[in-house]
Structure formats: C-alpha cells, structure tokens
C-alpha cells in the first residue's frame, strides 16, 4: 500500500514537472540549501534536497534527477563516498554530479573529478548564475 502511494506520488511529481530540470541537492547546511534551492526555483528548475547520504541515494533512485549537486563535508557518510556510490550504481551512474564544496585544494578537485564528478564549484567563490547554467548544461533537456 505504502509502495503504491509512493509510486503514485512519484508519477504525479514527474508528470507535473515534465520538461523541467530536476535537481537533487545533497547538503547538510539548511541555509545554504535554502539559498540554492530558491535560486534553482527562480530559474525554473525543480529542486529537492537531502541532508545525508542514505536519504540522498533513496531520493536519487526514486526521482531520477537530471543533475545532482553534492556537498563533500557531510555527517556520517562523506560526499566522496556518496559520489562513489552514485557512480557505481547502474541506474544512477549516468546522472551528472556537480560537487559544491568549500574544500578548495587542487588535490580535492582532482580526486573528485577522478571519482566521476562532472564539475567542481568552490562554495565561497560560486556565482549562482554560473551554477544554474552548469546545471542546465548537464541536464540538456
């Protein structure tokens, strides 16, 4: 019964947002999440968020976002581990992942690009317009 309800909810969500860019943001800072989701909404995307790895993988599987925005410093499961999980899971590995982190060392960037990130943004230097443009470029719908 619960499964049916969830499936209906997802179907309804998908139909309602047909043609729009679906973005999953994985971030544990609620204010940063609010700011980025607000910007994505203003620019016509359909954003939703998860604040930890377990919920993130569940949401990604259910809603199949066009793009994922991923913080690295997260409680319990790190962003690096989530990225590896996403890139090794059959129905998720095709989703472009934009890393959005304040880890700014060149080694952080290189390692996460090797893990399969499509792009890397350092939060404190991020231009929101550029972030959304990158989301839309990768969504390509």
């Amino acid at each position: 019964m619960e499964v049916t309800k969830t499936e209906e909810k997802i179907k309804e969500f998908s139909e309602r947002n047909l043609g729009k860019v679906k973005v999953l943001m994985i971030e544990d800072d609620p204010f940063i999440t609010e700011l980025v989701l607000e910007k994505l909404s203003i620019d016509g995307c359909v954003p939703y968020s998860a604040n930890d790895g377990k919920v993130a993988i569940e949401l990604a599987t259910q809603y199949q976002p066009h793009v994922i925005i991923l913080d690295l410093m997260l409680p319990e499961v790190s962003g690096e581990m989530i990225l590896e999980e996403l890139k090794s899971t059959d129905n998720l590995k095709q989703i472009p992942v934009i890393v959005f982190s304040n880890k700014s060392q060149e080694s952080d960037i290189q390692e996460n690009m090797k893990r399969g990130a499509a792009e890397y943004f350092i939060k404190s230097s991020t231009d929101l317009n550029m972030l959304v443009a990158t989301v839309k470029k990768f969504a390509a719908i």
Binding site: E38, N102, K123, T126
Partner: peptide, 21 residues
C-alpha cells in the same frame, strides 16, 4: 581561514539572491 569559508559562502549567496530578486 578554512572555517571562515562556510559562513562566508552563505553570506555571498545571500547577497547574490538579494541583488537578483
């Protein structure tokens, strides 16, 4: 310096949203 980045990110994103909206 590293610890400063997190609150600074929120401040900058807030400015951007305010200036655009």
């Amino acid at each position: 310096a590293h610890q400063l980045r997190a609150p600074l990110s929120a401040i900058r994103l807030t400015h951007q949203l305010l200036l655009e909206n």
